[in-house]
């Protein structure tokens, strides 16, 4: 038995079955403090499902997900968020009708109950927090802009910013650079390296160059299971991985 104290996230024996089809099958992996872990794998390997399971969008059939020793599989989605997990969706999920400022403000961790939201005041503290994050995600010039008018890359950054303002201990990103230009990709890698100073990050990504740039360790998934795990160099040369990616 591994001591869970050393890990931010411990996934053990995780299984989810959709009408008999096991999208994730007896999956185990561990994420350490301050680590950037990238999950790669062919389409349909169950990568996004793993994130769904961790953040509570999908309920597991079996197994456990422990976050700092706390079991997540039975918690409600907002409770999981409040325990310190932030998740970015595959397509940029932002509120297009609201301004960049308001997008970030909604994610500010206060006033999350109905009456808390009614009484919420835009205090100096909130403004300072929003401006700080906006600076990090390269959007400080666009705070008053309606979010729908941002470019695709900026929307991705905005969603990352909405997670940052929550100050999560574990950040989960589903394809953060999909559809970005080379320049934007570079900037995003820079951003991720900067924001992981005091948190762990779990990333799903297809772009191998980007994975090499950011990953501390890589988990390769195939058909709901872990195929290989280790440094990028290790998994690149693992014959099992080569077969899955090139064999067919």
């Amino acid at each position: 038995m591994v001591t869970q104290k050393d890990f931010v996230l411990a996934v053990e024996g995780l299984t989810v079955s959709f009408d008999g089809f096991k999208a994730v099958n007896d999956l185990s992996f561990y994420v350490e403090e301050g680590e950037i872990r990238v999950i790669i794998g062919p389409n349909g390997a169950g990568k996004t499902t793993v994130l769904d399971l961790i953040c509570g969008k999908t309920r597991s059939t079996e197994g456990s997900i422990k976050f700092r020793g706390k079991e997540l599989t039975k918690m409600s989605e907002p409770a999981i968020v409040h325990s310190g997990i932030g998740r970015k969706f595959q397509n940029p999920s932002i509120y297009e009708e609201l301004t960049v400022f308001e997008n970030l403000e909604i994610s500010f961790p206060r006033g999350h109950s109905v009456f808390g939201a009614l009484a919420f005041k835009r205090s100096a503290e909130v403004i300072a927090a929003v401006e700080e994050v906006a600076d990090e995600i390269f959007l400080s010039e666009h705070l008053g802009k309606t979010a729908g008018l941002l470019s695709h890359g900026q929307k991705q950054w905005l969603e990352i910013g909405m997670l940052l303002i929550q100050k999560p201990d574990l950040l989960m990103l589903d394809e953060p650079v999909a559809g970005m230009s080379v320049a934007e990709r570079k900037k995003t890698a820079e951003l991720l390296n900067k924001i992981t100073q005091n948190r762990s990050v779990l990333v799903i990504e297809h772009d191998m160059q980007f994975v090499e740039d950011i990953a501390h360790r890589v988990t390769v998934m195939h058909q709901g299971k872990v195929l290989s795990e280790g440094s990028m160099d290790f998994v690149k040369n693992d014959p099992k991985v080569v077969e899955v990616y090139l064999g067919h």
Binding site: P78, V81, G86, F89, Y95
Partner: peptide, 16 residues
Amino acid sequence: LAMREREDRVRFSGYD
């Protein structure tokens, strides 16, 4: 307004 547009995003920002 945010909920009408992106219910999941609001939910996974910690709102019930």
